[in-house]
Design a protein around this nucleic acid. Structure first.
Ligand SMILES: [Zn+2]
Ligand SMILES: [Zn+2]
Ligand SMILES: [Zn+2]
Ligand SMILES: [Zn+2]
Lengths: 140, 140
DNA sequence: CAGTATTATGATACGGATTATCAGTAACAA
DNA sequence: TTGTTACTGATAATCCGTATCATAATACTG
C-alpha cells in the first residue's frame, strides 16, 4: 500500500472508528485531501470536488479537524488552511507571500507551556502557534 | 497625565508619527479603545461609537494593528479581538468559555524562534501564539 | 430480502464580519 | 485662504461559513 493510500485509509478509518457512516462524498473528500500537494482551504476542496456539496465539504473538514486528522491553520488574513496531521502534534510556518506551509516540531514550545501552566489562572486546554516567514522562493 | 491619557496619547501620536491626519473620528476611536476594560472586538467599538462609521472603525483598527499599537488575537471561532500592546511583545491566554483574555510574556518562545530560524527555509517575519484555557471563573 | 429508523446530503437561503465604492468633507501645507 | 489630498461614512458587495429541510443513502431489524 502506498503512503498516499495509507493516508486516505487513515482519514476514512478515523471517521469509521468514531461511528460515522462511510459515504461516497466523504470518501471523495478524503481522496481530494490526499491529493492536495500543500495546505489547502475549504474552497480549494470545493473547487476540486464540484460534485460534492459545499456544506458537505465543510462538514467533513470539521469532522476531520475534530478527530485530529487535520490541522487548522490561522492565516494572517482570509480563510484558514488545513493540512494533514501526518506527524502528530506540530506547528507551522506560513510564507506570507506565497502561502506555502511547512511543518515543524519543537519541544521548547511544549516545555514552555508546562511552565506557563504553573503561573496562570485556569487550565490550559489548547494552544495555537504559527510562524510567519518569507520563504526562500519569494525572497531569495 | 494619567496612565489612560498616556495610552491615548500614544495611540494618537503613533498615527501622527506615521504621517496620518489626526481627525475627530480617529481620536474618538483611540478614546474608545482606551476605555475598553478588556480585549474587544471591532463590533464592540462600533457599538460604543455610534457616531463613527463602521468602515472608519475597521480602518483605524487596522492602522493601529499595523503600527503595533494593538494586538490582534485569533479566537477559536468568530471575530478576532484586539488589545492594547501595553507591555511590548507578549502573547495571550484566551478562556474558551467566557472569552477572557490575559497577557503573558515568555522568553522561551522567543528563544525557540531563534533556534528555529537556523533550521527552516526562509526568514521569520512574525509569529502568533494563543494559549486556550478554562479560566478559574468558568471551571473552579 | 423487505421495512424502518437513522444519518447524511446538497440546493439554497441566510448570517456575521469585513471590505469596496464613491461622492462629499475635513485636514493641513503653502 | 485656498487647493490638494487624505479621510469619512452610507451603502453595496464580498467572503466565509452555517441553518434549513426535503430527499437520498445507509444501517438495522425481523
Ligand atoms: Zn513564499
Ligand atoms: Zn504545540
Ligand atoms: Zn472563563
Ligand atoms: Zn512572541
Amino acid at each position: 500500500m502506498t503512503t498516499t493510500e495509507q493516508m486516505r485509509h487513515d482519514l476514512i478509518t478515523t471517521l469509521e472508528d468514531r461511528g460515522f457512516r462511510l459515504t461516497k462524498p466523504r470518501r471523495d473528500v478524503a481522496t481530494a485531501i490526499e491529493t492536495q500537494a500543500d495546505a489547502f482551504t475549504a474552497e480549494d476542496l470545493c473547487e476540486s470536488l464540484p460534485a460534492v456539496g459545499r456544506a458537505t465539504v465543510y462538514r467533513t473538514i470539521k469532522l476531520l479537524v475534530d478527530t485530529g486528522a487535520l490541522c487548522k491553520l490561522a492565516m494572517p488574513d482570509g480563510a484558514p488552511k488545513y493540512s494533514l496531521a501526518r506527524v502528530g502534534h506540530h506547528h507551522h510556518t506560513v510564507c506570507v507571500r506565497c502561502g506555502k506551509v511547512s511543518d515543524f516540531r519543537d519541544t521548547t514550545v511544549e516545555r514552555m507551556l508546562r511552565s506557563l501552566a504553573k503561573e496562570i489562572d485556569g487550565q490550559i486546554v489548547g494552544h495555537r502557534m504559527e510562524v510567519y516567514v518569507d520563504c526562500s522562493d519569494c525572497v531569495p
